[in-house]
């Protein structure tokens, strides 16, 4: 790479008279053969890797249609990458995940709490924050993406990933609700329900676009909470009802 080479050549180089005696030129013929072999292997490996990465990030095309499997085998799991950053279009909807719980209060009555907007909670935690945590920025957002991508519109899970995503969401929700202390002191969570609220971002002031910004809800069925669904050893509040 030219720009880079120039930078390097600014360094003091080995004295020219002996320059030919370093690197491959300093070796005897037998060693040179080995070095040449290494040169070929390394160059080939680097080019092959870059070609694979290129095909991985490129749109579906003739080559990827034919050799998709070979490319995937090379790329996954460690070289997976996705650089469609805010592309082709940035997300234009605020999707918030909300949850409510059915709790049994200390006096033994069962009641349903109101909806807690967990995403709004995250959003508030990010406000004015120079160092937002992944737990505020990615955890719930990506868990919901995972759920949506592994379920059909009837909320039927697709294979292992579907099941896992359901458990994941449930555990996050229980963890977050636990922090909210729903139903007051001594109450225990028996069931939870999750829904998403999707609202289009209103177009900018200067735009004459008309966009419906009324929210759309997607409501999931009620889920029973078992001790297995309670992360970070906070099980005490559920175990009683868990039976």
């Amino acid at each position: 790479m030219d720009a880079y080479d120039k930078g390097v050549s600014a360094r003091p180089q080995p004295a020219p008279p002996h320059a030919s005696r370093v690197g491959i030129a300093a070796l005897s013929f037998r060693y040179q053969l080995v070095a040449a072999l290494a040169l070929g292997t390394v160059a080939l490996a680097a080019c092959a890797h870059l070609a694979m990465v290129f095909l991985h990030v490129a749109p579906s095309n003739t080559v990827t249609k034919q050799h998709g499997q070979a490319i995937d085998q090379w790329i996954y799991p460690e070289f997976e990458q996705n650089w469609k950053l805010f592309a082709p279009n940035p997300l234009q909807q605020n999707i918030s995940v909300q949850a409510r719980a059915e709790v049994r209060t200390a006096d033994g009555t069962t009641r349903t709490t109101g909806w807690y907007d967990l995403s709004a909670h995250d959003g508030a935690a990010i406000d004015g924050n120079l160092l937002p945590s992944h737990t505020q920025q990615n955890e719930l957002r990506r868990a919901w993406d995972f759920y949506v991508s592994s379920h059909d519109t009837e909320n039927r899970p697709a294979g292992l990933r579907g099941d896992l995503s359901e458990r994941y969401i449930r555990r996050i929700v229980v963890l977050r609700l636990d922090g909210e202390n729903p139903g007051g002191r001594g109450a225990v969570i028996g069931r939870v329900q999750v829904r998403s609220r999707t609202a289009n971002v209103p177009p900018p002031e200067w735009s004459d676009e008309k966009i419906d910004t009324r929210p759309v809800f997607r409501e999931l069925p009620w889920w029973s909470v078992t001790p297995d669904d309670v992360p970070l050893a906070r099980a005490t509040k559920v175990e009683v009802t868990a039976r």
């Binding site: 592309a87 279009n89 940035p90 605020n94 937002p132 957002r141 177009p203």
Partner: peptide, 24 residues
């Protein structure tokens, strides 16, 4: 990005700033 309508009509940068996760 070039393929996205929002990057074409020059409003793309407005949208992430309106998302709760990316608007400190």
């Amino acid at each position: 990005k070039i393929q996205g309508s929002r990057w074409q009509d020059g409003t793309a940068v407005y949208y992430p700033l309106q998302l709760d996760s990316f608007s400190p």
